[in-house]
Design a protein around this nucleic acid. Structure first.
Lengths: 137, 137
DNA sequence: ATAATTCCTCTAGTGACTAGAGCTACAAGA
DNA sequence: TCTTGTAGCTCTAGTCACTAGAGGAATTAT
């Protein structure tokens, strides 16, 4: 039986976050000690590691809830789980594309600035005047 | 003199967002009509376009506040403005790197799954077992 | 036995908006 | 001039995934 602090140390998930996940229904409400403190077992450790792992991959809580529900039906086909991952991959790629555009625009703006006065500063001027931009943003 | 709706249409910034920027101190409190409605002029249009542009580039509100303050001192050197942009560029690049790692991990997980049952699903298994991962996340 | 640490619940704050309630002002047509 | 519809006003609360803090109780170590 682990305390919430033990669970936290073993999974790297902070104590308040564990309580938050309980509130969100990602982990079942833990058993309690006589003094009302949460007590965990091995399967809670696994569940929490699963959640942590999914969060690290950037999945949001509703998606994780769905994956947990799916994982409890081993007989079903896994197309739904695959779709969640694939949708997320698409979203990740879109974010990368957007950020790359920002990266290029920022590089361009910065490299155009000669570092003299604000009056001539290309950074400020580019922000003031959309016509100095490349691309459609 | 423009109403808040006119200003919104011309800049593409939504009406509640304009009021929010006023509250955050990015734009000055507008003059009011007799009936207490906001009335804007050309320089408000420019200011708001500046803000919108900076937001599109991903700058946060404190950074924009600083850029606005700087832009009102044309005689100062522009190293501070350049630094804000450069810092942001670093942050953007870091985000891109993180997302690329996620992208590769998701690609790998998805490609390993044969699409049969949840029991064998590589997506679910990879989440359950960190040992199946590549990289350090 | 006492002290230090951990735990509990509850509320509020983060950033940059967005949604909605309930009310008032303004512009255009009859 | 009257009416109607749109647009405006303020204020509160919700979004997401936590995080911080208050005030108090339980547990663990000395």
């Amino acid at each position: 039986m682990l305390s919430i602090g033990d669970l936290s140390k073993r999974t790297g998930v902070k104590v308040p976050t564990i309580r938050y996940y309980e509130q969100m229904g990602l982990i079942e409400a833990a058993e309690r000690s006589e003094g009302n403190q949460r007590r965990y077992e091995r399967n809670d450790l696994e569940r929490l590691a699963f959640i942590r792992h999914a969060r690290d991959l950037g999945l949001d809580i509703p998606a994780i809830r769905e994956l947990i529900a799916l994982s409890q039906h081993p007989d079903l086909p896994c197309v739904n789980a695959d779709r969640i991952a694939a949708d997320h991959l698409v979203a990740v790629r879109e974010k990368i594309e957007k950020l790359k555009k920002l990266e290029h625009e920022l590089e361009r703006i910065i490299s155009h600035c000669d570092g003299h006065s604000i009056e001539d500063c290309y950074v400020i001027r580019a922000l003031s005047d959309h016509g100095l931009c490349e691309g459609e943003h």
